[in-house]
Amino acid sequence: MFIKDAFLKKETTLSFEIFPPKNLDNIFNTIQELKKFNPDFISITYGAGGSSKDRTVEIASTIKNNYGIEALAHLTCAASTKEEIEEIINKLKQSKIENILALRGDIPEGFIQGKEYPYRYAKDLIWKLKEDANLCIAAAAYPEGHNECKNLDNGVRYLKEKVDEGADLLITQLFFDNNNFFEFKEKLYQYNIKVPVVTGIMPAVNKALIEKIQKLSGFVLPDKVKSFMSKYEYNEDDLKKAGIEYASYQMEELLKNKVEGIHLYTMNKHDIVKNILDNVSFK
């Protein structure tokens, strides 16, 4: 099933993101627990190279074919050759994976973009996927801009290019200020972007991880979140409790405003997901 069809049936979709761990047994236990929440899909992050790519395909296949949950496989392109991209696409198709999150990916240090690497941007990969395969394509959105593009209007114009090339839905970078997302959504309307937008939420239960991602991507970290992360930096239980409480508040407000989807970045912690969903009136 194409993920885009889920938005025709539900007011707000629920989905999760997981990443390939070194021990695959652990992730399959996590998937079994996440299945209890009836997600509309689970996305699997994509490693920079080697066996990590194969693990992404394997996990996506297991989610789809063993657990009966739609899988959204991440696929990066900037440092990949045409042959490498085609190989991954064929593996996904063989595993009956119909949904892909098309990403540029990080540029390796010292990398030189040559003609053997034809996919410089996510929009180029989207074009390739739409040309070669019958797939549902998701693309990344940045409600508060990105370190590489702080001008939000420029960012939305680039996003429009992804949609024009064939992106069927958008999934946002994590954010902690819902008002910034609501303003971003209004801007999408101004640019005539009408595909479903899924809001990415990550509970702030790991200070080092949140600060690392913030440094890389440039999302806004509100004073309230900074405050409780600093206050409970050395108290794991209290930080977890505060992070779950804040994520629950975010989700409740988003649900009241009838967002099209909520995508929880789980960090492979199904217990945190359960605690959050116990707090919110998700239907």
Rank of each mutant, 00 (worst) to 15 (best):
K64N: 14
V57I: 15
I88Y: 10
L92H: 04
S80D: 01
L103D: 01
A48M: 05
N66W: 02
A102G: 08
C77Y: 00
A102V: 14
I59A: 08
T76D: 06
V57L: 04
H74C: 01
A102C: 15
R104W: 02
L75I: 03
Y67G: 06
G47C: 09
E58Y: 10
A60I: 02
A79R: 00
I59R: 08
K96M: 11
D54G: 05
E87P: 00
G49S: 08
A71E: 07
I100G: 11
T62E: 05
S51H: 11
L101K: 15
L92M: 13
E98Q: 15
L103T: 06
A73V: 14
A60D: 02
E83N: 08
V57S: 10
S95N: 15
L101N: 11
E98G: 13
K91V: 11
K82G: 00
E83D: 05
E86Q: 14
A78N: 03
A102L: 15
G68R: 02
T56D: 00
N66F: 04
A73W: 08
T62N: 07
C77H: 04
K53L: 05
A48P: 13
K82T: 06
N90Q: 11
S52Q: 11
Y46F: 14
C77R: 01
T62P: 01
R55N: 10
S95C: 09
E84N: 08
E87N: 12
P108L: 09
L101F: 14
I97E: 09
I89T: 07
S61F: 03
K91W: 09
K91D: 11
N90G: 08
A48H: 10
N99S: 12
E58W: 04
N90R: 08
T81I: 02
G105P: 15
E86P: 05
K64P: 00
E109W: 09
I88C: 09
K93F: 02
I100A: 12
Y46D: 01
A102P: 07
S51F: 11
H74V: 02
S80T: 00
L75T: 09
T76L: 02
I107N: 00
G105N: 15
C77L: 06
L75Q: 01
E98P: 08
Q94Y: 01
K53S: 01
K64Q: 14
R104C: 08
R104M: 14
G49K: 07
I89F: 11
V57E: 02
D106G: 10
K93E: 07
H74E: 00
E86M: 11
A79M: 03
T56Q: 01
T62K: 13
E70L: 03
G47D: 08
E70T: 05
G105M: 10
G68M: 01
S51C: 03
K53H: 09
S61E: 13
